[in-house]
Design a protein around this nucleic acid. Structure first.
Length: 387
DNA sequence: TCTGGGGTCCTAGGACCC
DNA sequence: TCTGGGGTCCTAGGACCC
């Protein structure tokens, strides 16, 4: 017996961070606005908000309104570069607490209508509508999408876009086709007409590197990828990824909507305002290092985790990135033990360039022991690893 | 004066075990 | 002494995503 066709939705909030900001700054509606940077800037005299042109630093755009995107700026772009393209755009600092709160609200509203929900980050989710649309009817899918948009709007005042298709890969592609506030429903028969003309890069899982290599093979669109011989793809991208590319281009994706998943790691990192010399700025580096370890330890404690693998990340002035890690015999959330272990990792990296970024990571997570005996636990471990 | 911060997954070699 | 294979864990790097 054939498996029933699925009805999968991808819901993506429209310009999420910027849209949340506009709720409290309605005077900026319809204007180019970007969110990014660490601190709030002071507005120039007589202006209600700071302009992008007054930004100095190394931040990037986290979200741009559609009006700002029309000026050529987009998320991930450095703010200094964006300021050259759109000096008059308004710049607001990111306010993650607010975004998390609106994220909870929209997800709760959606889950009240569709219980099978997969969290894909702060502003997007997948939904399995199959049980609500067992015949896979396109009109039923559309009416579900309208109801979801309405309930998200009622709960948050924000708009979102939806794609509904037989699987996650296609649903994700579709949610992007009619932004903002769009609904795109795709049936099996629409693959060649709607999906194949799109650039291969639009497939979730084809990034800048793979897209560039595909371009080098003369493969620009998804249709061309679909027509490429499987052997050629596997020859250039490996057996596994080559097969995945082939299947993706043919719209094949069996991944289920996953409602629960266990976190794998915690990390904290910081990019310095100026690259730091490993010896001359050692005190500053050491202070920041300790602070990152304390932050990640506090994150672990707050969420009730301990971790055994302690790792560090360094990015040098030339953007070369190196990592080192070490796995302890017993997991920990002790900031002092994390700091000491991370310090040992750091000693294994030759430091001959200025340092741009420093990060600390804790992985191989588990729940802390049932009956905690905090002080002795960390003290015993500390001795174990001191020599 | 390009290029944040928080994640996941994959690959690949070596150690170690059966 | 050489030959064989499979499985897991650790570590480092890299691609990719939001």
């Amino acid at each position: 017996m054939l498996p029933l066709p699925r009805s999968i939705a991808h819901l993506d909030m429209d310009a999420f961070f910027a849209s949340v900001e506009l709720l409290s700054a309605p005077d900026l509606r319809g204007q180019p606005v970007v969110v990014g940077g660490r601190r709030a800037l002071a507005p120039s005299h007589g202006e209600p908000h700071p302009r992008l042109r007054s930004y100095v630093g190394r931040g990037v755009i986290t979200t741009a309104t559609y009006e700002a995107r029309a000026l050529g700026v987009h998320s991930g772009m450095g703010l200094m570069k964006a300021a050259r393209l759109a000096p008059d755009a308004w710049l607001l600092p990111a306010n993650f607490d607010a975004y998390r709160e609106y994220s909870r609200r929209f997800k709760a509203a959606v889950q009240a209508l569709v219980p099978v929900m997969e969290d894909r980050g702060i502003d997007e989710i997948y939904l399995d509508l199959s049980s609500q649309n067992p015949e896979g009817r396109l009109d039923v899918a559309r009416s579900r999408a309208l109801a979801l948009q309405q309930s998200v709007r009622d709960a948050t005042g924000l708009s979102c876009s939806l794609g509904i298709a037989p699987n996650k890969l296609l649903a994700k592609l579709c949610s992007d086709l009619d932004k903002p506030a769009g609904i795109t429903v795709l049936g099996r028969a629409d693959l060649e007409s709607r999906i194949w003309p799109l650039p291969a890069r639009r497939i979730n899982g084809i990034g800048p590197k793979a897209a560039a290599r595909l371009d080098g093979l003369g493969i620009h669109q998804i249709g061309a990828l679909a027509r490429a011989p499987l052997g050629l793809l596997q020859q250039h991208f490996g057996e596994r990824y080559g097969l995945w590319l082939h299947r993706a281009a043919h719209g094949e994706d069996e991944r289920p909507v996953v409602t629960e998943s266990e976190r794998k790691s915690f990390s904290r990192e910081t990019t310095f305002e100026r690259d730091l010399h490993p010896r001359l700025a050692k005190p500053e580096l050491s202070r920041q290092f300790t602070r990152l370890c304390e932050q990640v330890a506090e994150d672990l404690r707050r969420r009730g985790y301990v971790g055994a693998t302690i790792g560090i990340k360094l990015r040098f002035e030339d953007f070369q990135t190196v990592t080192r890690d070490h796995t302890l015999l017993l997991p920990t959330a002790d900031p002092a033990l994390i700091r000491r272990t991370a310090g040992e990792c750091a000693r294994r990296i030759p430091l001959d360039k200025r340092i741009r970024l420093l990060g600390v990571r804790v992985g191989k997570l588990s729940a802390p022991p049932e009956a905690p005996s905090p002080a002795p636990e960390s003290a015993r471990q500390a001795r174990l690893f001191d020599d």
